[in-house]
Simulated assay, not measured.
Amino acid sequence: MTAPTFDVIAIGNAIVDVMAPAEDATIERLGLAKGGMTLVDTARAQELYDAMGPAKEISGGSAANTLAGLAALGAKCAFIGQVADDQLGEVFAHDVRAGGIAYATPMRAGDPPTGRCLIFVTPDGERTMNTFLGASQFLPPVALDETLIASAAVLYLEGYLWDPEEPRRAMRRAIDVARAAGRMVAFTASESFVIERHGDDFRDLIAEGMIDILFANEGELATLTGESDFEAGVAKVAANVPVLVATRGPHGAIAIAAGKRAEVAAEPIAKVVDTTGAGDLFAAGFLSGHVRGLPLADCLKRGAICAAEIISHYGARPEGDLKALVAARTG
């Protein structure tokens, strides 16, 4: 097996986040599921955008956010995701490449437009996401750069993108390519509603040994395993996944690998401003340590530091110097 050229290559939604503060009354008036993520069509996306106050546009997408964190920590990364040949597509491509991430997926001509996620952030920092996937959901297997996938130590897959048929086939092919090259496959469950729709697929991937690193939060783990008790859910999955990382929001996170368990407390911050991207950046911090062969506890600590940085401001892309933060808080 040849040495990898990239640390992590990710396949995920290529979308632009449109974020605005909102009161709880607005969430209720619009009939939104506070704190969740809902897929919306073109008409609903326009309705919600019209209801937003002054907004901030930031390139997003779960896996792309994770790569932004990894690149900021010095990892060499590449991204595969579909945008349309339009203004938001240009914005997304520019932002990804400006972050030092290799990105060469061809733009898609015509409709639908580039995807966007309309995010309402309430005063408690909770984010309510409404995602129009747009061009992202038409990523075909033919768009994969298989040589690039085989050259990365870790293939990181975003559960959100498992929902549409074309990218689901693309990700299955990517897993085969990574496996054939002897690379690791990491998977983030993304959201409980995705597991409710495709849980059988995910459980099959786990049972077949196709996932080396699984990221899930407490709620996602319960949906995946059918266990309401956290520890019971952990035990059910840890036996079949080489590395399990389970986050618990303000209660920290745990990781289990080869029967060894490590835990980390959440990093203290002055104020939670916006929880968008907390899980994405936790994965970035963890993977930045994992690809370096660091102990589980150190990987978790890096994840907690990155998650704390991201929830201290609006948006799911780092604003602080993650390298400096990690260095200062890990000694």
Rank of each mutant, 00 (worst) to 15 (best):
I269M: 05
K236V: 02
E126I: 03
A178W: 07
G134V: 06
A258Q: 15
A253E: 04
A255C: 11
D124P: 05
D274M: 02
G159M: 11
V264P: 09
A20Y: 01
A33I: 13
R97F: 08
T330Q: 15
C306W: 09
E23A: 15
L30N: 09
M210G: 06
P318M: 11
T66C: 04
F286K: 02
L48G: 02
L157Q: 01
L244H: 03
F193S: 03
T5D: 13
C117G: 10
T131I: 10
C77L: 01
G199E: 01
A232D: 14
I256Y: 03
V241G: 06
L144M: 06
F282T: 03
S312D: 02
L205E: 13
G315C: 01
Y314S: 01
L48S: 08
G100K: 05
V194F: 06
F215E: 03
T26Q: 15
L70S: 10
K56A: 14
P140F: 04
A266L: 03
A262C: 08
T147Y: 00
R172T: 15
R169C: 05
M210N: 13
E231L: 09
S288D: 09
A78E: 06
G279A: 04
I101N: 04
A232S: 14
C299L: 07
I80R: 01
G320C: 12
A307Q: 08
P141R: 04
V16S: 08
P268K: 13
D111F: 11
G125E: 09
L300I: 06
E146C: 13
A327K: 14
Y49F: 15
Y314G: 02
L30F: 11
K271D: 13
A63Y: 06
A327N: 08
V142Q: 14
K56L: 14
V243H: 04
G110Q: 13
D204K: 14
L221N: 05
T105P: 10
P318N: 12
F92H: 12
L133E: 03
S192R: 15
A235Q: 08
G12I: 09
G315E: 00
Y49E: 13
L221F: 05
L73D: 10
A22K: 01
A55T: 14
V18T: 14
L88A: 11
R173D: 03
G303L: 12
A143H: 13
D85S: 10
Q137D: 13
A78F: 07
D95A: 09
A170D: 12
I149Y: 04
A68P: 06
F187W: 13
V241L: 05
T114M: 03
T131W: 00
F286V: 04
E231Y: 12
L214Q: 04
A55Q: 15
V185I: 15
R197G: 07
G199A: 02
V272K: 03
P112C: 05
T5K: 10
G115T: 08
P123I: 09
F132L: 07
A102I: 14
A180W: 06
V142G: 09
A186D: 08
F202H: 06
A266E: 11
D200N: 11
R173L: 14
A20P: 06
E146L: 03
L39Q: 10
K56S: 13
V291F: 05
K301H: 14
A72H: 15
D50W: 11
G293M: 02
D86F: 10
